[in-house]
Design a protein around this nucleic acid. Structure first.
Lengths: 151, 151
DNA sequence: CTCTATGCAAATAATTTGCAAGCAC
DNA sequence: GTGCTTGCAAATTATTTGCATAGAG
């Protein structure tokens, strides 16, 4: 599997927005994800659900729910480069990128998408029609400037 | 492991450039990677080396070599979002992003880095000091426009 | 000789899949 | 009843690690 790549987690330039029709599991997962303000992985959500309720969905269901939530545009998947994908609730059809602090780990949303800014230029120059993209930025946030704390 | 992220594969805004001092394994891996013009995964390189020579480095060595090559700035790691990281030789200290075609799988280099373009604006607006970033763009390349071929 | 590089096998860990049972309509 | 949803366990797969040996300086 070396010439294949999945796109479910990318951020389409435009996104089809469907409404509702969530399975019970997906609803529970979405609720949980809505409560977490931070990015959460499938395992995070699973663990979190395990604690809260006695009748929590299984790990498989969490994975499958996230998959469909992403497909429906309710959730955005974020790849930080470690082996674990994170998820975050978004307004259907929207997406955003993150400024992730190397020191404290906090992530803030970027309010603009540079790729969209360059989309037309790229089509003009390369004849390339953008469908989706991945963009995450790492560095040091304002609160951590000058600090020497390690996570 | 939910609040941790590795950065070895990101593209620093500035990069320290050291010279040579490669282990035998790293040299072999670098050579192999130089011959492949496409992005190649550790497993790709391993398989490729297995074929060519009788005395090819083991998989572990390939992984370790890639790791050090990336650290030295000779190689860039690219995350396409499937579980498999790809690697590519770069001029030491440089980096670039890709336009990856969903249809034919080919990847072309972008000749500009949007993140660098916005680096100062982001520092000004968010007080965020960028250290590295991930950016890959997916879509349809010019050659595949109008075609309906699936990979 | 001493330290680093290497290889193999075993361990990790996230995610996926097969399959049987449960639930919805 | 029929089909989608769920759960558990087993399988997959990339990557990492332990440890003992080979090689370089």
């Amino acid at each position: 599997m070396s010439s294949e790549h999945s796109h479910s987690h990318h951020m389409p330039a435009t996104k089809p927005v469907k409404r509702n029709g969530l399975t019970k599991g997906a609803q529970v997962v979405l609720d949980a994800l809505e409560q977490v303000k931070e990015l959460a992985s499938a395992q995070d959500i699973y663990g979190r659900l395990r604690q809260g309720a006695d009748k929590a969905p299984g790990l498989t269901t969490v994975y499958r729910s996230l998959e469909s939530l992403v497909a429906m545009g309710y959730v955005q998947s974020v790849d930080l480069g470690d082996g674990e994908k994170r998820y975050e609730v978004v307004n259907p059809g929207e997406h955003h990128h993150h400024l992730i602090c190397d020191k404290c780990g906090e992530s803030n949303h970027l309010d603009l998408c540079m790729v969209e800014e360059f989309e037309e230029a790229i089509r003009a120059k390369y004849g390339f029609q953008i469908k989706s993209h991945v963009l995450e930025i790492f560095g040091v946030c304002s609160r951590c400037h000058g600090h020497s704390k390690k996570i």
